[in-house]
C-alpha cells in the first residue's frame, strides 16, 4: 500500500435542501483496493459515492482523481472521465431496456468510438467472464435479476476502468445471487487492478472488501487501524 492514493475526497459537504447528507466526509481510495462504504440508511453513503464519481458536485471540499481536482473539469469533462476511467454498477434500472445485453455492455465502448464489431467482441468476452454469455442476445427484461446485475458488472468493467463505483449492487438480489455477483465483481476488479468503491449495508457483501469505511451523520470513518 504505497504511493499516492488514486481518489481522494477531502472534507466533503453536501446538502439537499435543509438536510445535510455529507458534513465533512473524507476518504481516500488507493489503486486496486476494494473499499466498502457502510452505514445506516440516510447516512450519506450514496451521496459520498456520487461526489467521488463527479456525479454530484459537493457544496464544499474537494475530490481529486489522480491529482486532478474534479471541480475544475467541465460537465463534459467529468462525463468523459466517468466514461473512460470509472465504471458503475447500481442497484437496478441501469440497463437500457431496448438494447440486448450484448449491446448494453458494448455501449460504453461505442460511446468511445470503438467500432461496433470490436466493441461487441469485447463485450462478449466480458459476458463470458461474468458467466452470462448465454444471455447476450436477450433484452434486460428477459433475464433474471442476478444475470442482469452481472451484465451490469460486465458493462462497468468493459472499458477497463481504474475505479468501479458500486452502489448496493446486490441490493435487489437474494444472498446466493448477490454473493455470486460480488465474487465476480471483486475477482474481476482484482484481476484488472481496478479499485472498487462499494456502497452496501450488507456485512457479508462488505466482507468482499479489503477495508471498510463507515459513514455516520455525513462523516466517514475508516476502521482499518484495527485490521
Amino acid at each position: 500500500m504505497t504511493g499516492e492514493p488514486l481518489l481522494v475526497g477531502d472534507d466533503l459537504h453536501r446538502s439537499f435542501g435543509p438536510t445535510p447528507a455529507l458534513a465533512g466526509a473524507s476518504i481516500s481510495v488507493r489503486a486496486g483496493e476494494v473499499v466498502a462504504v457502510m452505514g445506516p440508511s440516510g447516512s450519506g453513503k450514496s451521496t459520498l459515492l456520487h461526489c467521488l464519481a463527479g456525479i454530484v458536485r459537493p457544496d464544499r471540499g474537494s475530490v481529486r482523481y489522480r491529482g486532478t481536482e474534479l471541480a475544475t473539469l467541465s460537465d463534459a469533462g467529468r462525463s468523459a472521465l466517468r466514461r473512460r476511467e470509472f465504471g458503475f454498477v447500481f442497484q437496478f434500472g441501469q440497463l437500457v431496456p431496448e438494447l440486448t445485453c450484448l449491446e448494453n455492455v458494448a455501449l460504453p465502448l461505442r460511446l468511445e468510438r470503438v467500432p461496433r464489431r470490436e466493441a461487441e467482441r469485447r463485450a462478449g468476452e466480458w459476458l463470458a467472464r461474468l458467466e452470462v454469455a448465454d444471455v447476450a442476445g436477450k433484452r434486460p427484461g428477459e433475464v433474471s435479476g442476478g444475470q442482469g446485475q452481472r451484465v451490469a458488472v460486465a458493462r462497468a468493467l468493459v472499458t477497463g476502468p481504474r475505479v468501479v463505483f458500486a452502489d448496493e449492487p446486490t441490493g435487489a438480489l437474494d444472498s446466493l445471487n448477490g454473493e455470486r455477483v460480488m465474487r465476480l465483481l471483486a475477482g474481476a476488479a482484482r484481476e484488472t487492478g481496478a479499485a472498487v468503491l462499494l456502497v452496501t449495508h450488507e456485512p457479508r457483501v462488505a466482507a468482499y472488501s479489503d477495508r471498510e469505511v463507515v459513514v455516520r451523520d455525513g462523516r466517514a470513518r475508516s476502521l482499518e487501524q484495527v485490521a
Binding site: 463534459a76 462525463s79 466514461r83 465504471g87 458503475f88 447500481f90 441501469q94
Partner: peptide, 11 residues
C-alpha cells in the same frame, strides 16, 4: 434510466 446513463458518462 436517463439519469443513470448520464451518471455512467453518456454524453
Amino acid at each position: 434510466l436517463l439519469a443513470t446513463l448520464v451518471a455512467v458518462g453518456t454524453p
